[in-house]
């Protein structure tokens, strides 16, 4: 099963290497990892999607906790949460077919962000399923280049996984 972990870490150099190294040497599989700063400049947040059964998840969480730079870990998989990914796709496109691609983009609420002589570049945000569907819809036109950010996620409602927030705060 896939789990989504919200991991708060000290914003120290090398913290990404520590986390990535831990996953590889213990044989855990990362599906996606996204990292960036948070509302506090000294704290970064990683959203890690990891594949494994309960035993693996327990080990992942415990081993992550052993890293001194890791402050807080929440497995938000069982909770209601919003998750988003951003994708940029550069599609082959003769000027005559631009309209067609713009229509596809409209359906997914994607935006054209750049035009080349024979390409268009579109951006789209959404959950993983939507991004996958968008990618499939553009595939027939010929995808020249594609880049995804990896998933970021946040609990719904009043609850939060931030440093001071309690996951169980209703």
């Amino acid at each position: 099963m896939r789990h989504t972990l919200a991991v708060l870490v000290e914003n120290n150099p090398g913290v990404l290497a520590r986390v990535a190294g831990l996953f590889s040497r213990r044989g855990f599989n990362i599906d996606s990892l996204a990292v960036g700063r948070t509302e506090r400049p000294d704290v970064s947040r990683m959203t890690i999607v990891v594949e494994g059964d309960d035993r693996v998840l327990e080990q992942v969480t415990k081993q992550l906790h052993k890293l001194v730079d890791v402050i807080k870990i929440n497995d938000i998989t069982p909770d209601e949460y919003v998750d988003r990914e951003l994708v940029l796709i550069k599609v082959n496109c003769e000027p005559a077919r631009r309209g067609e691609i713009m229509q596809v983009a409209d359906v997914f609420r994607a935006r054209i962000v750049d035009l080349g002589r024979k390409t268009v570049t579109v951006e789209c945000t959404g959950n993983e399923g939507k991004i996958n569907a968008f990618e499939e819809s553009l595939r027939p036109y010929g995808i020249k280049e594609l880049v995804r950010t990896g998933k970021i996620a946040m609990l719904r409602g009043n609850r939060s996984t931030s440093l001071d927030g309690k996951k169980d705060d209703e």
């Binding site: 090398g14 290497a17 190294g21 040497r25 890293l67 001194v68």
Partner: peptide, 16 residues
């Protein structure tokens, strides 16, 4: 050496 000892230390530092 901080990279090399990452998996075999409880923690490590390079002083910047």
């Amino acid at each position: 050496i901080t990279g090399i000892t990452l998996p075999v230390t409880k923690h490590n530092y390079i002083v910047k």
